[in-house]
Design a protein around this nucleic acid. Structure first.
Lengths: 204, 204
DNA sequence: TGTACATCAGTGAACGCGCGTTCACTGATGTAC
DNA sequence: TGTACATCAGTGAACGCGCGTTCACTGATGTAC
């Protein structure tokens, strides 16, 4: 068989990464197959060797975020149940609602960049989006007070605040107002987290 | 001059209303001028008698929400500073985060239906979106405790929770999870409101 | 009151362009001998 | 070791379609006389 075993999967990964960046920046409809393939250093026709259609790439591009920065956040906050780091979760909230994240059009979380694009896409794309939310909520929930039955609901509220605050900030043309929203959501999220953090897991 | 004075403005209003409904349901890119004009009972060519281009209609369609259900909410909650009704604000939060609002693809708030579409549109469209947020925040803020300097920040957080909770619920394919997010955001918003409502304005 | 006229909202065909997708072909690569 | 071959990733031209926008034309309506 010609080409090494991983040659195709590496090319595919390059296409996914190009798609993730371009979709994040320009949205689903404004990105063309040409743009994606050019960004990946390839030409148009080869796209269909790797994906059934444009929406299939979209689904992979969205979920690929979990393998990149998402994994980084997850690692920092601690996936290992035996080694939770609640203070890192607060740092993750800081990072998510930061001015840096707001300005990072390429690296931003797709939940912020693409909500209405995804809402009108295929079930596969929406599943990818849900994977991101589930990861975020799981990360929050694990570090909230499990003895309080409200841990899950607080985790979901935190996610709504993080995503909602950033979606609004991204959309508002008045950057002062955008910062106000972002900051208010940040304070509210920090309040909810501190009131419900599993204090037994906090460092001394 | 042929045609009565308000003939043209009525036709224009029909086009805006058709646009609002169709954009809400299908998003900016999937709606065609043909669809809008047909929905308004007209034919394609006449569109440019009323609007410079498709995006100009988009801007008007988004802001037109304020004149419809938005105005209704505002009236119910009380715009008149001398006659505030904080309990109506809680009812507005209820309505905004309700399962009915989630299912109302035509009548829903454009802040939920179109965030990423708007974020990548013209400044005029983004201004329209900002008008909706400003109205919502103003309505909340007026009814929070003004002696607390945090009234504005709590109002902004409430907006982030309302919009964020609904945007997520709209996007998630698992309707159980969507309801969980919506309910959690609702509880968190109610908490924030109750803790910061201007009690002097509550009815006895 | 009735009629000719001017205006302009509305019509629908046509234009131009771009994009998703297909397809016949190329050529780089690993394998068989 | 070297060579012919088979495979299939990649190429780029072409197809087909749809949509935003334009434009010459129509006809409904209010006005002037």
């Amino acid at each position: 068989m010609p080409y090494s075993a991983e040659h195709k999967s590496k090319t595919r990964a390059k296409i996914v990464e190009a798609g993730r960046i371009l979709f994040n920046k320009h949205g689903f409809h404004s990105v063309t197959i040409d743009m994606v393939m050019a960004e990946a250093g390839l030409t148009r026709g080869g796209f269909y060797n790797h994906f059934e259609n444009k929406e299939a790439l979209f689904a992979e591009a969205v979920s690929s975020f979990l393998m990149g920065r998402g994994a980084q956040w997850r690692d920092e906050a601690g996936v290992d149940i035996s080694n939770l780091k609640p203070e890192m979760v607060l740092q993750m909230i800081d990072a998510y609602l930061s001015t840096e994240h707001l300005g990072d059009m390429e690296g931003q979380c797709p939940m912020i960049a693409l909500p209405s694009d995804v809402a009108r896409s295929s079930p596969e794309v929406r599943d990818s989006y849900q994977q991101l939310l589930t990861a975020m909520v799981g990360l929050f929930e694990t570090n909230l007070d499990q003895s309080d039955s409200g841990a899950r609901r607080h985790a979901l509220s935190l996610a709504a605040l993080c995503v909602g605050g950033m979606v609004l900030a991204r959309t508002l043309p008045d950057s002062d107002l955008a910062d106000e929203v972002r900051t208010a959501a940040h304070l509210a999220a920090a309040d909810i987290f501190r009131e419900n953090v599993n204090t037994t897991k906090l460092p001394n």
